[in-house]
Each structure stands twice: as structure tokens, then as C-alpha cells.
Design a protein around this nucleic acid. Structure first.
Length: 896
RNA sequence: GGGCCGUUAGCUCAGUUGGCUAGAGCGCCUCCCUUACAAGGAGGAGGUCAUCCGUUCGAGCCGGAUACGGCCCACCA
């Protein structure tokens, strides 16, 4: 056949060529000065920890569908690709590899050595990830590929940190953090999972000092070693068993320390256990809260850290110093038993927090960390979602966002890691007579000024550190913290360091830089043309597990940076009125208008595919067995509103994965390929002739009517992010209507010189519109067929009915639109009755197992109007039901 | 413990505001390699829509309860 298309669709012979041409002709490249309303998506940057899996594939596919469709609709379209350095996760992976391959720790290779190795890892996986995205057909603007550690983004980070510091929104606090003793870093609440552990509940006796009413109190604990850090025991103020003891003391066993008995009605539930709770502020979040509550009260208690950063007992643990946690626990229990102070030990099950990264139990640990004050940032971020300036799809996910952000918990941003944005703060110890601030309140004083258009800042926060007390007027030791302005030159830093200031060794939480992603990737803080044109972005496409970690923080930081800090609000009312008064301004500050949450891809066992679990399936495996279009079509078809998609996979002998699920898409593409072969072959041999609508048959009018409806349905589906509905509409129209019925119905006409040209016109139009319609989801195959269609039949429009510009490349051609006049109720009704009739005849034939090629004689009895329609389409029925119709009898009345 | 979601054919999932005989793909059965396509064509079997109660002329859909599964959040010394 002269169309040269092979019988079976072979994606591997088509995909690389199409992609090469798109790249070569810069079809993905965005120009800020180009006409058209902007349409922007920034990719959720995949972690550089490893290769992408099918969860990323669905994410990328859906974004590409949106981008390609808008590009075809004439929008000025930009899709920004990029990768996240994923601080803790990546460092953990590389450290693990270091340990396994070379038996070295990070301390052996030092900071520079480790960072160097991580960069090498990054290079390898970044390339792999970008290659995976390309293989999937992603039409990203690769000239604008970003990495969260790029200099461009580093500038945004420094700028943001400085502004937060200046505005008093970032502060240094001694806080109880989740400490990963293996990685020796703090871990956020979100990076912890809980595991049920079988342990014991130990009941300990604390002797009461100097009171005849009782000899001792009993406290229960699952972590007996923490008793070394107890600074109080608490009872409920209304508990008659113990409230008489409030204000007295107990003697803490093993240490001999005397600690107060205090009342705390929040911590203590008098109905639970003995009604007495040991208080270890430095090593338990609830106890820490007790310490805070009692800070400025007459019954203020101490706080005592007993751990070293690597998880051993420190000097405050006296005789136990140097022991690891488990050893200390054992010895404490032994010693208490020896002294008769262990009341009992009972088996107990409890949930223990583990670090997601190192899989080791976390310790609540008191350490110095940087925090971002959430309330003023969170209030406007909450308000824009309440006011639906940012719309979640499906809507229910707004609740996740609102309830999490509503807690306004301060955000710990420092990480004791080497991989990431170094915290831009220099510090120096000093002494003075005044207590400049109260560390518990973590207030700060920052001094900075502008000279000759340059920041010459000497920001400082004073901390007293003197021997546990901060009430007298002795000499205070404090630390000055300086955050140089982001535009500071090296001179200022040299100056600082000459004065003895030292840069903070920690790095920022990885989410700090990804929170800036929508504007930092466009060049902020520079007022670049990209930022002006493409911000705010149109939609964020992501999965639901990072609504809190990422989405909420992007909204906060977007509003803060792009709204120039003008929407900061201490209260809900303030946020509400600020936003109500400046609607148009807030609309330019928010990072996106829609947040579309797509389904989670699960493996065959129902577990979420994830890099850390290692159960991910490489999309390239699927591309190699089924083709990229098949992958995309299937994923789009699975993107339903119900959230989880289970995807059983099986392993091929060579270790790659595949799944029968993708047969759906592969078969679909093969069908399209063959339908195109058929259509193109006919179009090539039939001379073109102007469209004459008066010669359209019922079948012609029916297929165009179905086309018009399908286009409307696809528009509605994609407009509401129903990718499954879009895919199904494509499937049904193309396969069921066009191939099964129209093409079969029209075969004789294509061979009839009198009818061939008009039929070819309709066929060409239908193919043309189908390719446009399906291009966003199956771009490779549609583009390839398009080229041939252009060669064979350059003009295939039906003026006034089906419109849209035609480019040499489908990717740059117009999204199809159909005039309403194409919708033909009568043709649809007649045709569907014929379909029913044909179906009925086929059914009977099959029941009698008649050979499909053998024609049968049929006589029909039908109501008069139906009989007339059948008579008028006798040839069609005979063709499709393989029969010859003898008599068509008109029934006296319509049968129901 | 709080919140959200789910439970529809053997499997994976649709089912829009309650309304003809509840759908699709895969799998299964029968016939067919008909010059676009066997990765295909034609036909078929298969579902008391998790359970119970209620609202309604009418419920897969609305309300309540229960069971099971999943996710998120908070975790009681």
C-alpha cells in the first residue's frame, strides 16, 4: 500500500522521531512576549533520590494533557520542569550507599566530600528523571529546567529567608524536636511514622520528702531511663488522693535530686493510672508543654537534657553517662529494682515514632533550631482557600488543607544536614549585663539599614545562656545572629567573619525551597518577563500526600513574596478584610488558581508506589512493552475521581515490569493506526471534490453529529479535570462509533465513483478532528498520522461546521470545535434504530451459529415509520448484518 | 480517639441533579484469520450494587446505623 504504514503499530519506530521534531522546532518553548492568554504549570519537582515510577507518570501525563490542549487552544503555554534536591532523603540514600559500598560514614569523608558525592548522584538521577519525562512525551520547556539548588533558586531562598528574618517571622528557638539519632538531624512530624512496639510499662516509686501522709508516689512509664531527666511530678488539682501534696517534693531515685510536685490539669487525667505523671520536659512533647505552661508561674520547673546528639546519656545522667538508650534503660530498671523502687513491670504495647528516612526510633530532643512563625503567613493562605480564590479539585481536599494549616504550628526549618541551602545566618557569642530577651519567648531584635541602595545589616538576636537562670542581673552570655541581606557582597561576609561571626552549619528544610517553586522558577526576585507573564500559574497537579507539606507552604510563601508581605495577618478577621479589600492584588500573589489532586497509584498489594518503598514501576518499562501513548492513554483512563488505583504488575524474565492494564492503551493505538491506514489509503486514491452537504447520508450526518457531541463532552470533561471521562469519550467515539459503525457503513460508498468523493470528505474531517481531539493524550501516534494526512489531504475542513487552524505539526494546530448545527437529532435517532435492528439480526445469526460470511434472508415486520426508514437504508442493514432483506411488512400499529 | 474516602461482574473501575432492561476494559464461552486492524470482528454468559433500617410513586445514588478495607491527623503517662 502506498501509504507505507506498517500493519502493526510500532511505537518505538514513531515516538523518537516525533519527539525529536518537536524539540528541533522548539514546539515546547515558551515566549513571554507571545500572544495569547498565559497558561502555566510548574511540575511538582520529583525528588532526585531515584528514578520515577508510575505515580509520577500519571502526574506528568495529566499535566501534559492540560498543557497540550491549551497550547492547541492558542494559550501562551509554559510547562516548567525541574527536580528537587530533597535534602534529607537524598543525603540518607547517599550515606547509605557510602556505608554499604565503602563502609564509610559521612564524618569520614567530611562535608565537602559528602556534598561532592551527592552532586554526583544528583547528576546521574537528574538525567535519568528528565529522560523518563521525555520518553513519556512531556512537552516541558526544557530550556527552563530548574533544580532547587540552582543559583537562581538559591537567590530566591536567601531573599525569602532575609525577609522573614527582617519581619520577625523566623526565629531561633530551643525546642523539642524529633531527633533522628542515626542521621543526627531533626525530623519534621511529617517524616515520622509510628510502629507498634511490644514493651513494658514500668511503675516506679518516687519517695515523698518529709511528709507523713504517704511514703511515695507511683509513676508509670514506657521509657524508664527518662526519669533521669525528670524535673517534676504532676497531679491533678482536683484529685483528692494527691492534691494535698502539691508544692511538696519527691526525691528522684538514683539521682538524689529533689523535684517539685506540681498541679497540671491538662497533662494529668485523674481517672488514668495512679494519677501521678512524671515530667521530663526535655524528652517528651507533652512534658515540654508542661514546662512551657509553667514558665512564668510561681511553680516554674526546670528543664534538663540528658541526651547527646548521637543518642547516649550525657553528663546530666550522672553514673549513666555514656550509655546508649537501651543500655541505660536496662541499668535504670536494674538499679531501681535493687533499691526496691520498682513497683511492677507489665507487658505493654505502644506506638513508637520512627524516622521515615533512617527507620530508627526517634528521640524527642531539646535542641536549637530555626523556626518560621506560622500564624501571620497561614491566615491569608487559609483565607484564599475559604474564599475559593484557590480551588481544590476534588473539593473535599480543601478540608485537609484547611485543617492542617489551621493549626498554625510553627515550622521548624533547620536541618542538621550537609545537603541543601545553607542557612544564611552568622552568629557570635558575646556577654553583657542586660537580659535582652527571653529565650522562652524567642523574641528577637533585628537591626538593619539601607545605605546607598545597599543593605548594610547588622541584625542581631540576643540570647542569654547563663547557667540556667535568667532572672538576676548577673552577666549574661548571649549570641548575636546576623542575616546578611541577600544582595550582600563577599566583603560584608568577610567583615563578619573577621569579627568572629561563624555561619550556621545547618541547612534549610527541603520544603523551604520547594515552597517558593512557582515563583522562584520564573526568576523571582527579579522581575523577569517570565514572572510577569506566567505567574500566577494556572493549576497545580499533584497527589494528596503533600497537600500539607507542599501545597500549603507554596500558598503561604507565594502570598508572602508575591504579595510583598502586605497580606500578613495575625488574625482571621485581619486576613479576611485585607484580602477582601485587595482582591485583584491577592489574585496576582497566589501561586495557582486550581489544585487538582490526582489518584494515587498503588501496586498489586494495594500499597502506594513510592521511591522509598522501592515498589515503583519504571514508566520506561511500560513504554518499552506498550509504547508511551499506551501508557498515557491508560493512565488518563484511570484518573477517576475515586482516588486509589490498584495496578497489579508482573515481572518479565529480564527483570523489567509490565502490566496487562496497558493493553487497553496499546490496543487503542493499534486500532487508530489501522483506521488511519484505511482512511489514508482511500483518501489518497479518491480525488478531492468540494463539500456538498446535500449529499450527506444518514451515516454521514450521524457521525458528524456524534463528533460534535464528543467534542463538547471532551471540553466539559477536561474543563473539570475528568481525565477518565475524556479518555472514555475518545474511546467510544473513535472505536465504537467511527470504526465499528461509520467506517463499516461507508465501505461501499468509498468504492462507488458517484459517492466516493463526498464520503471521503466526511471521513477526512472525522479523522482530522479525531487526531486533534486525541492529541493531548496520545501525542506521538496522532502527530505521526497527521503528517501523512497533511500530505495526502491538505484541505479537509467543512467551512462553518468544523473549524480550527491547521499547522504542519499537530501539536501547533488548533483544538477542534464543532458548530452546534452539526448535532442532528433526526440522524441520531434513525441511525440508532438501524443499529438496534442490525444488532437483533446479528444476535439471531450468532445464536444459530451462522458463518459470518454467509448471507441470510430476512423478512421484517415493523411499524410504518420504522419500515420506511429501514427501506430507505436497506443496503446498510444488508451490509452490516450480512443478509438480504426480502419483505418489509408494515405492522398496523407501533409495537412498544 | 478525631476526620476523610471506599465497598457495584472473576479482576480493575465508571455510574453526573434519585427515573426505561445497572455499564466499560480485561478475563471467560461460541462463531469468524471477511484485502484497515486476530493488539481484530460478531454475539453471549456473568451483578439480591457490603449489611440493616428509613425517606420516596420510585434508591447503586438521599438520611441513619453496622461490618470490613484504606488514608490523614492526634496520641494518654
Amino acid at each position: 500500500m502506498s501509504t507505507e504504514l506498517p500493519r502493526t503499530y510500532d511505537p518505538s519506530s514513531v515516538e523518537p522521531e516525533a519527539y525529536r521534531i518537536w524539540l528541533e522546532e522548539k514546539c515546547f518553548h515558551a515566549d513571554p512576549s507571545a500572544p495569547g492568554e498565559p497558561y502555566t504549570i510548574v511540575i511538582p519537582p520529583p525528588n532526585v533520590t531515584g528514578a520515577l515510577h508510575l505515580g509520577h507518570a500519571i502526574n506528568a501525563t495529566l499535566q501534559d494533557i492540560l498543557i497540550r490542549r491549551h497550547r492547541m487552544r492558542g494559550f501562551n503555554t509554559l510547562w516548567v520542569p525541574g527536580i528537587d534536591h530533597a535534602g534529607i532523603a537524598t543525603q540518607a540514600v547517599v550515606e547509605k550507599q557510602l556505608k554499604e559500598k565503602e563502609n564509610l560514614t559521612r564524618h569520614d569523608v567530611r562535608r565537602e566530600g559528602l556534598v561532592e558525592r551527592i552532586w554526583a548522584w544528583k547528576q546521574q538521577y537528574a538525567d535519568r528523571i528528565l529522560e523518563q519525562l521525555k520518553r513519556m512525551g512531556s512537552s516541558c520547556d526544557w530550556d527552563r529546567t530548574r533544580f532547587t539548588l540552582d543559583e537562581m533558586l538559591a537567590r530566591a531562598v536567601r531573599e525569602t529567608f532575609f525577609k522573614l528574618f527582617r519581619d520577625g517571622l523566623v526565629y531561633r528557638g530551643k525546642r523539642l524536636v524529633n531527633w533522628d539519632v542515626f542521621l543526627q538531624t531533626s525530623v519534621s512530624d511529617d517524616e515520622i511514622y509510628h510502629e507498634t512496639v511490644k514493651t513494658s510499662l514500668w511503675h516506679l516509686r518516687y519517695p515523698i520528702v518529709d511528709d507523713a501522709r504517704a511514703t511515695h508516689m507511683v509513676v508509670a512509664t514506657t521509657r524508664p531511663e527518662t526519669m533521669l531527666g525528670d524535673t517534676a511530678v504532676a497531679v491533678h488539682s482536683q484529685d483528692p488522693r494527691w492534691n494535698w501534696a502539691i508544692g511538696k517534693q519527691v526525691e528522684l531515685p538514683l539521682t538524689g535530686r529533689r523535684i517539685p510536685i506540681i498541679a497540671d490539669d491538662i497533662l494529668v487525667d485523674p481517672k488514668f493510672g495512679s494519677g501521678v505523671v512524671k515530667v521530663t520536659p526535655a524528652h517528651d512533647p507533652n512534658d515540654y508543654a508542661v514546662w512551657q505552661r509553667h514558665q512564668d508561674q510561681p511553680d516554674a520547673i526546670d528543664i534538663l537534657n540528658i541526651l547527646t546528639p548521637d543518642g547516649r546519656m550525657n553528663e546530666n545522667a550522672g553514673a549513666y553517662a555514656g550509655l546508649r538508650r537501651d543500655a541505660a534503660r536496662k541499668k535504670v530498671v536494674e538499679d531501681l529494682t535493687a533499691q526496691g523502687l520498682l513497683e511492677k513491670e507489665e507487658p505493654y504495647e505502644t506506638q513508637v515514632g520512627h524516622s521515615d528516612r533512617s527507620k530508627t526510633p526517634i528521640e524527642p530532643y531539646l535542641s536549637d533550631q530555626w523556626f518560621v512563625k506560622m500564624a501571620p503567613l497561614a491566615e491569608p493562605a487559609l483565607e484564599v482557600v475559604r474564599e475559593k480564590l484557590i480551588q481544590f479539585v476534588p473539593e473535599r481536599y480543601a478540608q485537609t488543607y484547611l485543617s492542617w494549616l489551621g493549626e498554625k504550628r510553627d515550622w521548624p526549618i533547620s536541618r542538621q544536614l550537609w545537603w541543601g541551602h545553607r542557612i544564611p545566618v552568622w552568629s557570635k557569642k558575646g556577654t553583657g549585663h542586660e537580659s535582652k530577651s527571653d529565650p522562652a519567648q524567642s523574641s528577637e531584635a533585628i537591626w538593619w539599614q539601607r545605605e546607598n541602595d545597599k543593605w548594610t545589616a547588622r541584625g542581631c538576636v540576643h540570647w542569654m545562656l547563663q547557667s540556667g537562670s535568667h532572672t538576676g542581673d548577673e552577666m549574661f552570655e548571649f549570641i548575636s545572629y546576623v542575616c546578611p541581606p541577600p544582595a550582600a557582597d563577599q566583603n560584608l561576609i568577610n567583615e563578619l567573619e573577621a569579627e568572629g561571626f561563624v555561619q550556621d552549619p545547618d541547612v534549610l528544610d527541603t520544603w523551604f525551597s520547594s515552597a517558593l517553586w512557582p515563583h522562584s522558577t520564573l526568576g523571582w526576585p527579579e522581575e523577569t518577563p517570565e514572572l510577569k507573564t506566567y505567574y500566577p500559574t494556572s493549576v497545580l497537579v499533584t497527589s494528596r500526600d503533600i497537600i500539607t507539606l507542599w501545597v500549603a507552604r507554596m500558598v503561604m510563601m507565594g502570598i508572602y513574596n508575591m504579595g510583598h508581605g502586605e497580606f500578613l495577618a495575625e488574625s482571621t478577621e485581619e486576613a479576611h478584610s485585607k484580602i477582601a479589600n485587595r482582591k485583584s492584588q491577592i489574585k496576582t500573589a497566589i501561586p495557582f488558581h486550581d489544585v487538582y489532586i490526582h489518584p494515587t497509584i498503588l501496586d498489586g498489594k494495594g500499597e502506594r508506589m513510592s521511591k522509598s518503598k522501592g515498589n515503583g514501576v519504571d514508566p520506561v518499562d511500560i513504554i518499552e512493552t506498550h509504547g508511551a501513548d499506551a501508557l498515557r492513554f491508560t493512565l488518563s483512563n484511570m484518573a477517576t475521581e475515586t482516588q486509589d488505583v490498584r495496578l497489579p504488575v508482573k515481572m518479565l524474565p529480564d527483570g523489567r515490569n509490565t502490566s496487562d492494564k496497558f493493553d487497553l492503551g496499546r490496543n487503542f493505538c493499534n486500532k487508530l493506526w489501522n483506521a488511519a491506514r484505511f482512511a489514508l489509503g482511500n483518501l489518497e486514491s479518491i480525488a478531492a471534490e468540494p463539500v456538498d452537504e446535500s449529499r450527506w447520508t444518514v451515516a454521514d450526518r450521524w457521525i458528524l453529529s456524534r463528533l460534535a457531541r464528543t467534542l463538547a463532552e471532551a471540553d466539559a470533561a477536561l474543563g473539570s479535570y475528568r481525565f477518565d471521562t475524556y479518555a472514555k469519550a475518545c474511546y467510544d467515539f473513535f472505536w465504537r462509533d467511527l470504526c465499528d459503525w461509520y467506517v463499516e457503513a461507508v465501505k461501499p460508498a468509498l468504492k462507488d465513483p458517484n459517492r466516493a468523493a463526498q464520503t471521503a470528505n466526511v471521513l477526512a474531517t472525522a479523522l482530522d478532528a479525531t487526531l486533534r481531539l486525541m492529541h493531548p493524550v496520545i501525542p506521538f501516534i496522532t502527530e505521526t498520522i497527521w503528517w501523512r494526512l497533511n500530505d495526502i489531504r491538505p484541505d479537509r475542513s467543512i467551512p462553518g461546521k468544523i473549524s480550527g487552524s491547521t499547522n504542519k505539526r499537530l501539536i501547533l494546530s488548533a483544538w477542534p470545535t464543532a458548530d452546534k448545527s452539526l448535532i442532528d437529532e433526526e440522524a441520531e435517532s434513525v441511525f440508532s434504530r438501524l443499529q438496534e435492528l442490525i444488532g437483533a439480526i446479528r444476535n439471531i445469526r450468532n445464536e444459530y451459529k451462522v458463518n459470518p460470511k454467509k448471507s441470510v434472508a430476512v423478512s421484517i415486520v415493523a411499524p410504518a415509520d420504522a419500515a420506511r426508514q429501514i427501506e430507505a437504508n436497506r443496503a446498510l442493514v444488508e451490509l452490516l448484518a450480512v443478509c438480504s432483506i426480502g419483505e418489509i411488512g408494515a405492522a398496523l400499529e407501533a409495537t412498544p
